[in-house]
Design a protein around this nucleic acid. Sequence first.
DNA 1: CAACGGAACT
DNA 2: AAGTTCCGTT
Length: 231
Amino acid sequence: MAGDTGPLTTKRSKYSRSSTRKSVYLWEFLFGLLEDDECASVISWTNKLEGIFTLKNTNELAKLWGTVKNKPNMDKYKLFRAMRNYYNTGMLRKVKGRNSMYQFVSIPYETEGCETCSKPPVVGSPAEYSLTNSDWCERLTDHFERIRTADNCSRTVDYRKSTENNGKSTTENCEQMEESFNESNGYIVSRATSLSGYSMSSDSIMSTKSSDELQADLLNIDIKEQISEND
DNA sequence: CAACGGAACT
DNA sequence: AAGTTCCGTT
């Protein structure tokens, strides 16, 4: 019972998915949109392996967030402030010198899919759904509802302890993990075997590097320049 | 202008 | 509790 927290699992911290909370966390909202290709004009991964993403249309993003939270007066500045709150928790950091670029450093919990989840949750895009806000909100709410109730369809996997994983042996999984770990230059991420394709939090943070090292590595990454001129 | 963070408030 | 709102500072 006690001490069952595996070394590779993500932090659960205080964010409870199984609670009966009604609203969605900001980071869930961001992840949801990041995982949706249709939302690429609003927010998208710049380097998913590193957890780095870029806000492409901050006004639209804020509008969406306001819709989800039912805060009509939401604007990008308030959204940014909310995101800055995550700095303290170590969840998020700013990629310095890169406009509207942020990085998820840690993930509160895993929501790995499983065999019984035939379809990954899908969120419509704001562009596609030039639907009304309420229509879109309904879809997003449904999307997150599925995330919240996905406990019985998710497993917290400790790849070093699990005896079986997707038909692979522990050894195979460990090798796979070690491999991706090494390939990732020492810190972060196993894409594991992305199951349903919905990998909202299936990445595991395996950081062995300090923030400074991480930051240094970041500077060497060939991040494709985003030249997003505002009208 | 982009980004930061204290403080009061919900 | 997790932001929201406001605002002075860098």
